[in-house]
Write a protein that binds this DNA or RNA. Sequence first.
RNA 1: GCGGGUGUGGUGAAAUUGGUAGACACGCUAGAUUUAGGAUCUAGUGCUUCACGGCGUGGGGGUUCGAGUCCCUUCACCCGCACCA
Length: 937
Amino acid sequence: MNYDFNQIEARWQKYWADNNVYKATNNSTQPKYYILDMFPYPSGAGLHVGHPLGYIATDIYARYKRHKGFNVLHPQGYDSFGLPAEQYAIQTGQHPAITTAENIKRYREQLDRMGFSFDWNREVKTSDPDFYKWTQWIFLLLFDAYYCNTADKALPISNLVAHLAQKGTAALDAVCDSNTPELTAKEWEQLSEEAQQHYLLHYRLAYLAETEVNWCPDLGTVLANDEIINGVSERGGYPVIKKKMKQWSMRIGAYSERLLQGLEHLDWPESLKEMQRNWIGKSKGASVRFTVQEHQAELEVFTTRPDTIFGVTFMTLAPEHELVAQITTEAQAEAVTAYVEATAQRSERERMADVKTISGVFTGAYAVHPFTGEQIPIWIGDYVLAGYGTGAVMAVPCGDQRDYDFAKHFDIPIKNIFEGVDITEAAYDEKGNTPLTASDFLNGLSYAKAIEKVIAALEAEDKGKGTINYRLRDAIFSRQRYWGEPIPIYYVNGVPKALRQEDLPLVLPEVEHYLPTPEGAPPLGNATQWAWDTAQHKVVENSKIDHITVFPLELNTMPGWAGSSWYFNRYMDSGNDQEFASAEALDYWREVDLYLGGSEHATGHLLYSRFWQKFLFDFGFVPVEEYAKKLINQGMILGTSAIIYREKGTQHYISKNKVGDTAVEPIRVDVTLVNAQDELNLDAVKKWQPQFKAATFDTENGVFLVDHEVEKMSKSKFNVINPDAICESYGADTLRMYEMFLGPLEQAKPWNTAGISGVHGFLKKFWRLFYNHDQCMVTDVPAGAEERKIVHQTIKKVTEDIEQFSFNTCVSSFMICANALTTAKCHSREVLEPLVVLLSPFAPHISEELWKALGHNSSVTQAAYPQFNPEWIKEQQKNYPVSFNGKMRFTLALDLALDREAITAAVMAEPQTQKYLDGKPPKKVIVVPGKIINIVC
RNA sequence: GCGGGUGUGGUGAAAUUGGUAGACACGCUAGAUUUAGGAUCUAGUGCUUCACGGCGUGGGGGUUCGAGUCCCUUCACCCGCACCA
């Protein structure tokens, strides 16, 4: 019987599915272990070889943990709401649900082909109403909550209402919008019901507000900060501009400190934790209030350097700052309006591109210095960001380079407050011990002391206070899209009202067009039929007009990260239609023990999901505040694109080495059209795309050579390698082991199939330890000492390496072991049996088959993990001959040893050693296992 | 600019965490076997030298009996953030 992987793999995959082998139970006497992959978005391109890398790693670990006696939860699902399916719908009219279902089917086939041990009974899809019912439910929970700083947790909004009714905003310490007016209890009572509801929006954790948003005109939607990369949209790379819009937001800022503190105890990659810390961007400083001359207004600024307050020579406001219109003098009005408009029209990208150009305009207004009473001119400049701090800065040109440059550019005076420091060329921005001068009561003080003193003074005079500022901004939660969760809100006279829990899910309605309505409403405005009626809770049939006009529904949908912010809890109890998961299930599984996914989610999904988890924890719905104990980022598998050169403006292509000085442009061609020698298949390329039909090719030595570039694997770059093809020619077990063998899990690496034959050869060699053609080779003859040793070494090494997720070295260990047993012609059951179990997490199909060859009737999945036997090792080590060869050197007569401590003990017990030491204890014993021993006296 | 990371043969990479650097695999060379093979097996393969030997973990310096590993310095590349007051 030869190693017929295709037949073996298909058979065992069917067996596992038919027998529900990997079903996890929610109660077990075994310890639990929850292993999770970041679930994929099912794209139309299907899986490429990069996707399974993480799934293979978690699958190995899951299977290992099962052997070790754990009740393992290893689920999989789909993040199935998203842009590509919707854009396909816009182009073709095909409902995104159909596209998505097709893609999921394809994904599932590909995943099954690789032999993963997922518990598919628990599959989730974020676009499934049974799932998004609970996404909507959590949204309403957030809508119905505010953040109480006193309790340092989220509380029901009813608590806030009670407080307002009793004391107004007095003694209220809660997170709210910066423009929230203060109220007395009486004023609160006098507000109309509507006004009260509007007022509460300042506090709700899911709230509706007029905010500055990132608007992407080409996508026709707003985007969150993490969805913008280098000033353009993450999806599609379209320009993004700032715009004021009424949008739903999530008050994630309320959790800034807890999100920051929570990182301390997480076993996550340091780089990723650092990214989150930077994103949260905590900075300590002070807020200072400046009064504006001839206006009632006060100008509040945030500064990390309140010690430099006597160096202030001007103020700068962001062009979007709300005071701009109010304080600008008539003389300056024209210039200011022009500047504000010009800034608004610049895209985020343009604004980022020329940070060097200094621009700004004087408002004509003056602020009053809180200590000196001096007049300070108020300017506008786009180097001040509207979204950070208060959108206004006190400019200290002597201590801040940007203020310095601005002052120089506009000829604003610069006042030096640093003793003995030369600022004729640049600002002095070090936080050193340089004493302050010309700073009244701060004179002579260093940085730290001055900050302390000035904050005390500000607080004493009620002109400011010590404060902490976070860069983290509230997350915009509305998207003007069709293919997302409907927001379960309706409006009564413009006041947002929550749907009742029994009205959920608010099912996504059918629409004829997936684009915004002619009136500019989001795509849901096209819906003529909602399965929901506001007042009577009846199904509305063709009567949208009445109800929608009376009680319009929210037409925005939720962003892509809504469903992924809590899905890990759903797997614990995915079939539950009463709760998002039962308390019992949540108590049993608690949290994800191992989470694996890419680092690109650092400031998106991984931050939002921590936020939602903390919120659910505050309300007692989940038992733990952090949902992922340990997280590993797998490195991306990169593709190698094939590049050919086209002479500019022609259809003439030139082989790689003949390009020379010719002006050419690089064109990507499909990598599958290129052979291992970098030669392009010219016939195939002419058929591949019409533009090559009439092309001419300048070859060298009769062949056309291509150039390469290593980059992200993507359909648009024609460099995608499909795992199905690898499975077809080598089998899933080879693919699994080869992907692990490629290099360390965390490292990014280009895909190449150069080494795959080595791994495949190992499996064939391993097979031949059991079968020689039709003859089963397994014997009951005991193995020799050498063979036992190598097997025990392999058990020890592989087990240790799995625990450290060092799967590439595991594969090497298996190869070494197989080579040794082959050379020794050892077919002893005694050593083959533990090896099969050891190998089964990596190559489950072949292991099942060989387990059967050993005479077992059950699946290898149920087998106990082989134990490294220290007793046996000790027994062996008694026989290690040790020879003394010189003053400080011993050589052990073995090629490899197992345990450094054991060898040290053995050597110390040697009479030769005792003689050498002459009764004195050694200073240090240095052992290189199996090799050399040095004893230092 | 700030933060994080990586530099080891022709290639992917190991290195028991301070202990024979290059395990294992690809590739390459030679040979065996086979009708043939992208099959299997054997031997060799860091550089240099006919050889003894010498040199080797981006460069320079240091600590140590001993450094790829620790410290200082410098260079190169990758990733993230970036007018954050």
